[in-house]
């Protein structure tokens, strides 16, 4: 039980740090302090204020919530903060994915037809992805941890 708890703490702490770092990178890329990044499957374009500065701030909050959860008193409060941190990442990832979906359904301005081909539609979801989308599966692990703990208690 004890070992388990410290592992969860470590995981949430690391994830919080990574989220925080990516959020800051989003903002910095928008501010022009760092070049827009595209490494492997990761892309930080930093081209518009709304997505990168504002969205980056949401990521920063997400990271801070996860880190904050480690310092909170009481299990309930800790879990709530960790979940809230994860939700922040979900919001960014979810809206990113939704934006891709909205781009991939229509055929595009030049094409004569209205709907995209199936291949074109699927192609719309090809990498690179934003940091939030990449972090999405890792944040889901938090939910798994919490459910596990719930069933432990019960």
């Amino acid at each position: 039980m004890n070992r388990n708890t410290s592992m969860v703490t470590l995981y949430i702490g690391l994830l919080g740090l990574v989220t925080l770092a990516f959020g800051l990178a989003d903002i910095l890329a928008w501010a022009g302090m760092i070049q827009s990044v595209s490494i492997g499957v990761l892309e930080i374009a930093g081209d518009d204020f709304f997505r990168w500065a504002w969205g980056g701030a949401v990521m920063v909050f997400g990271g801070l919530f996860m880190l904050g959860s480690l310092m909170s008193p009481g299990t309930m409060e800790r879990s709530a903060k960790a979940i809230l941190g994860a939700i922040m990442v979900w919001i960014i990832a979810g809206t990113d994915i939704f934006a891709r979906l909205c781009e991939s359904i229509p055929a595009g301005e030049e094409a004569p037809e209205f709907f995209n081909s199936v291949a074109g539609f699927i192609g719309g979801f090809a990498p690179p992805y934003s940091a939030a989308v990449l972090l999405l599966p890792f944040t889901l692990v938090i939910v798994y941890f919490l459910f596990n703990r719930k069933s432990d208690e019960a």
């Binding site: 709304f50 504002w54 949401v58 801070l64 919001i91 809206t95 909205c102 301005e109």
Partner: peptide
């Protein structure tokens, strides 16, 4: 922080759906 995130989601979904998908994707062409 939550309010900032909610507003973000609100505007992002609004512009993806109304702008990108329906208007630019279909209506402009039609």
């Amino acid at each position: 922080a939550v309010a900032v995130a909610v507003l973000y989601a609100f505007w992002s979904i609004f512009s993806s759906f109304a702008g990108t998908l329906v208007t630019d994707g279909f209506m402009v062409k039609a």
